[in-house]
Amino acid sequence: MTAKKLTVVSAGLGQPSSTRLLADRLASATVAQLNAHGTDVEVDVIDLRDLAHDITNSLLTGFPSQKLDAAIAAVSTADGLIAVTPVFNAGYSGLFKSFADLFDPKMLRDLPVLVAATGGSERHSLVLDHGMRPLFTYLHAVVVPTGVYAASSDWGSGASSGQSALPDRISRAARELAALVAASDRSARPLDPFVLDPSFSPIGAFSAE
């Protein structure tokens, strides 16, 4: 059986990063769920902080670097996607949005996606439903019902209630994503988001429906 491909996008800016930590935990939980049902998984992790200059240059010139092209291809050819962003000013990060702006609007058609975010306060958790879910719905992806938000208190040693809730949310979201990934068929989606149209511009890089 061909291994499923799980792509993880982390928009964390720091090192170490709570955003990357959450992304890793979600990926591990999803892989464990798939392995438990006899499905092998290949995991590809994309740290957007390492692509920040490439993303900006691509938005300015319309042409991706080799590294950025590979990252977008990893998303477009995945069987499942985990997308995690820090929250700034009640919204997903500009780096995360800039990366998504490079996607063809139909590139993620029927792709199972788990959305997650990190922030300092629990009150920013609405970014999942008011920001990330509409973004991926517009991109024709299938967003799992459970989004995972981790506030600073979820990582603190004194926040026992938060610590008990976060693993539960991770586990539930991972089960939902794993079920969709197991049934996904990436052959039905476009594989090359940078096929050139007659204007010699990357298709969809700046388009809207």
Rank of each mutant, 00 (worst) to 15 (best):
T77L: 14
S152R: 02
Y138T: 10
S199K: 04
A141M: 06
P145N: 08
S125D: 13
Q163Y: 01
A27N: 05
A3R: 05
T39R: 09
T7L: 03
T137N: 10
V45N: 07
A178P: 00
L13M: 03
L48R: 13
R172N: 02
P134W: 01
D44I: 08
T77I: 07
A165T: 06
F103Q: 05
F136N: 03
G119L: 07
D47L: 14
P198C: 06
L139W: 04
L95F: 09
S28K: 14
G80T: 15
G131V: 10
L196C: 05
G38D: 04
R20M: 00
T39H: 11
D129T: 14
R20C: 00
A100K: 04
A11P: 00
V87H: 15
P190A: 10
N57R: 12
M1T: 08
L196K: 12
D101L: 04
M107Q: 15
E176L: 01
L111N: 08
L48I: 03
S184Y: 03
V41N: 07
V181A: 03
T56K: 09
A29H: 01
A205C: 05
A90Y: 14
E176G: 02
S184I: 05
T118C: 14
K106Y: 08
A52G: 01
P64D: 10
T118I: 09
I170N: 00
G120C: 12
F88N: 13
P202S: 11
A165H: 02
S153G: 10
P86M: 14
P198L: 09
A151K: 06
S160T: 12
A90E: 15
F96H: 09
A29R: 03
A29K: 05
F63T: 06
P64H: 13
L139A: 04
S184W: 02
T19F: 00
D69M: 08
D197E: 13
A90M: 13
A70Y: 10
L81P: 13
Q15Y: 03
D44T: 15
P198T: 03
M1Y: 09
G158D: 11
T7M: 02
P202I: 04
L13A: 08
A11H: 06
K106T: 08
S58K: 06
R109M: 05
A71G: 14
V75E: 09
S121M: 09
S58P: 01
T137C: 06
D110A: 09
L126R: 07
D197P: 00
S160L: 10
P202Q: 11
I46S: 00
L81H: 12
T85G: 14
K67V: 12
Q163M: 10
R25T: 02
D101S: 13
G38P: 06
S201D: 07
D50E: 14
V148Y: 01
I203D: 07
K67N: 15
T30A: 03
V43M: 09
M1K: 12
S171I: 06
P64E: 11
F206D: 08
P167G: 13
A178E: 03
H124W: 12
A116F: 07
A3D: 10
S207Y: 08
G204H: 09
L180V: 02
D104C: 01
L26K: 02
L139G: 04
D154R: 06
L135S: 07
D40I: 00
A78Y: 11
V9P: 05
